[in-house]
Amino acid sequence: SMGQARALMGLSAQLDEELDFREGDVITIIGVPEPGWFEGELEGRRGIFPEGFVELLGPLR
């Protein structure tokens, strides 16, 4: 894990590789696949999402 982030708003996945989450969910960050995107894990599910949907809870490791 690289850190954690809290969802500022919900994301309804449009693509298979995207992660669904609700506002307030705390997501474990597991990677940065490309600039502007995070890869995360939530409730046993993994996927990517735009960084603008979340606030980091501390610096990434």
Rank of each mutant, 00 (worst) to 15 (best):
residue 3 G to Q: 00
residue 42 L to Y: 08
residue 46 R to M: 05
residue 8 L to V: 11
residue 49 F to V: 03
residue 54 V to G: 01
residue 29 I to T: 02
residue 7 A to P: 12
residue 53 F to M: 07
residue 59 P to S: 08
residue 51 E to Y: 05
residue 44 G to E: 01
residue 45 R to G: 00
residue 21 F to M: 03
residue 58 G to V: 07
residue 23 E to K: 13
residue 18 E to T: 11
residue 6 R to Y: 11
residue 11 L to T: 12
residue 27 I to S: 02
residue 51 E to D: 09
residue 49 F to T: 00
residue 44 G to Y: 01
residue 3 G to W: 06
residue 30 I to R: 10
residue 53 F to Y: 14
residue 44 G to P: 03
residue 2 M to I: 13
residue 38 F to E: 02
residue 14 Q to S: 12
residue 9 M to H: 11
residue 43 E to I: 03
residue 61 R to L: 15
residue 18 E to N: 10
residue 55 E to H: 06
residue 2 M to E: 04
residue 51 E to R: 14
residue 43 E to Y: 07
residue 19 L to P: 00
residue 53 F to T: 12
residue 15 L to H: 14
residue 10 G to C: 12
residue 45 R to I: 04
residue 59 P to T: 03
residue 44 G to N: 02
residue 11 L to I: 05
residue 18 E to G: 10
residue 9 M to Y: 11
residue 28 T to I: 02
residue 23 E to L: 03
residue 17 E to P: 07
residue 40 G to V: 07
residue 53 F to L: 11
residue 1 S to H: 12
residue 30 I to H: 10
residue 14 Q to I: 11
residue 25 D to E: 08
residue 42 L to A: 05
residue 49 F to N: 05
residue 45 R to N: 10
residue 43 E to M: 15
residue 21 F to R: 01
residue 13 A to M: 06
residue 5 A to F: 01
residue 15 L to K: 15
residue 56 L to D: 04
residue 11 L to R: 15
residue 34 E to M: 08
residue 17 E to D: 13
residue 40 G to T: 02
residue 28 T to H: 07
residue 16 D to N: 09
residue 22 R to N: 11
residue 20 D to M: 06
residue 61 R to D: 13
residue 37 W to M: 14
residue 8 L to H: 03
residue 43 E to F: 11
residue 60 L to C: 10
residue 6 R to Q: 06
residue 18 E to I: 11
residue 45 R to M: 15
residue 59 P to V: 09
residue 53 F to D: 02
residue 48 I to C: 05
residue 55 E to N: 00
residue 48 I to P: 08
residue 20 D to E: 15
residue 59 P to C: 03
residue 46 R to K: 10
residue 19 L to V: 03
residue 56 L to H: 06
residue 17 E to Q: 12
residue 21 F to S: 05
residue 59 P to I: 00
residue 5 A to G: 11
residue 42 L to V: 11
residue 15 L to Y: 12
residue 55 E to F: 00
residue 41 E to D: 02
residue 5 A to K: 03
residue 27 I to V: 05
residue 14 Q to W: 02
residue 20 D to H: 09
residue 37 W to Y: 12
residue 51 E to F: 05
residue 55 E to L: 09
residue 43 E to P: 02
residue 38 F to G: 03
residue 1 S to W: 11
residue 61 R to H: 11
residue 38 F to M: 06
residue 59 P to A: 00
residue 61 R to Y: 12
residue 29 I to E: 01
residue 21 F to C: 06
residue 58 G to C: 11
residue 19 L to K: 03
residue 36 G to A: 01
residue 53 F to N: 10
residue 4 Q to F: 14
residue 22 R to F: 08
residue 40 G to S: 04
residue 48 I to Q: 15
residue 48 I to E: 03
residue 47 G to Y: 00
residue 46 R to T: 09
residue 25 D to N: 04
residue 11 L to H: 15
residue 23 E to P: 13
residue 13 A to F: 10
residue 47 G to M: 02
residue 34 E to Y: 13
residue 56 L to F: 10
residue 21 F to D: 00
residue 18 E to Q: 15
residue 13 A to W: 04
residue 47 G to V: 02
residue 39 E to P: 05
residue 49 F to G: 04
residue 9 M to G: 03
residue 17 E to N: 14
residue 18 E to W: 09
residue 3 G to K: 01
residue 15 L to C: 13
residue 27 I to T: 08
residue 3 G to E: 00
residue 41 E to P: 04
residue 9 M to C: 14
residue 6 R to P: 07
residue 16 D to P: 14
residue 25 D to V: 05
residue 11 L to W: 09
residue 43 E to D: 14
residue 58 G to Y: 07
residue 5 A to P: 00
residue 30 I to D: 03
residue 56 L to K: 09
residue 59 P to W: 03
residue 29 I to Q: 13
residue 7 A to C: 04
residue 5 A to D: 03
residue 13 A to L: 00
residue 60 L to P: 08
residue 25 D to I: 02
residue 9 M to T: 14
residue 29 I to M: 01
residue 17 E to C: 13
residue 36 G to F: 04
residue 11 L to S: 15
residue 56 L to E: 06
residue 40 G to F: 10
residue 12 S to A: 10
residue 25 D to S: 08
residue 49 F to H: 03
residue 28 T to L: 06
residue 43 E to G: 11
residue 2 M to K: 03
residue 45 R to Y: 01
residue 5 A to W: 05
residue 61 R to E: 13
residue 1 S to C: 13
residue 25 D to C: 00
residue 6 R to D: 00
residue 47 G to H: 03
residue 39 E to L: 13
residue 38 F to C: 01
residue 2 M to G: 04
residue 30 I to Y: 07
residue 11 L to N: 15
residue 53 F to H: 15
residue 23 E to M: 01
residue 56 L to C: 05
residue 37 W to T: 14
residue 17 E to I: 11
residue 14 Q to V: 11
residue 8 L to P: 15
residue 13 A to R: 11
residue 14 Q to M: 08
residue 23 E to Y: 04
residue 44 G to V: 01
residue 4 Q to L: 11
residue 13 A to V: 09
residue 46 R to S: 07
residue 36 G to Y: 03
residue 55 E to Q: 09
residue 17 E to W: 10
residue 53 F to S: 13
residue 40 G to C: 02
residue 14 Q to D: 13
residue 34 E to R: 14
residue 56 L to Y: 01
residue 15 L to V: 14
residue 48 I to M: 07
residue 6 R to A: 04
residue 56 L to R: 08
residue 42 L to I: 13
residue 55 E to S: 08
residue 58 G to M: 05
residue 53 F to Q: 07
residue 22 R to Q: 13
residue 44 G to D: 05
residue 19 L to E: 15
residue 13 A to T: 15
residue 16 D to Y: 04
residue 29 I to S: 02
residue 48 I to S: 04
residue 20 D to W: 06
residue 23 E to T: 11
residue 53 F to K: 09
residue 16 D to V: 09
residue 31 G to K: 12
residue 4 Q to K: 14
residue 14 Q to T: 14
residue 18 E to S: 10
residue 54 V to Y: 04
residue 43 E to R: 11
residue 12 S to H: 15
residue 16 D to A: 08
residue 31 G to W: 00
residue 22 R to Y: 09
residue 45 R to F: 04
